[in-house]
């Protein structure tokens, strides 16, 4: 290997290592930007809320998981008319809440 070539490659290698380090730091910073909550009041640590483990329940092992697609539904709406998931999806994301109700 010629000396001249080495001189040229050394700064390049340094730059590459520096870039690697920077990207690790950035990844570390991204790691901090994950929304974390405790799954239950007895949980020891807050965990990433975007994972299936976070929202899983022993009482509902077959509950739909993250990444699965929800089938559209249309149900009667309190106050008249219907509520349709596909209509709501046309406007963007949809939060679907199952609550106990009063019966």
């Amino acid at each position: 290997m010629h000396m001249k070539e080495l001189k040229l490659k050394l700064p390049l290698a340094c730059a590459f290592i520096c870039l690697l380090q920077i990207s690790t730091i950035v990844a570390g910073a991204e790691d901090e930007l994950i929304p974390r909550y405790k799954p239950s009041s007895r949980s020891a640590q807050p965990i990433d809320i975007r994972t299936n483990a976070y929202g899983a329940s022993r009482d509902a092992p077959a509950a739909l998981s993250i990444g699965e697609r929800v089938a559209d539904f249309t149900v009667p709406r309190a106050g008249g008319g219907v509520v349709s998931l596909s209509d709501a999806r046309d406007r963007g994301p949809v939060a679907i809440i199952f609550y106990r109700g009063h019966w």
Binding site: G67, R69, V70, L85, P93, A95, I96, Y99
Partner: peptide, 12 residues
């Protein structure tokens, strides 16, 4: 009691 949020394409 359950809460789901789906994207506009229906994916949870």
């Amino acid at each position: 009691h359950a809460v789901y949020i789906v994207a506009a394409d229906g994916e949870i």
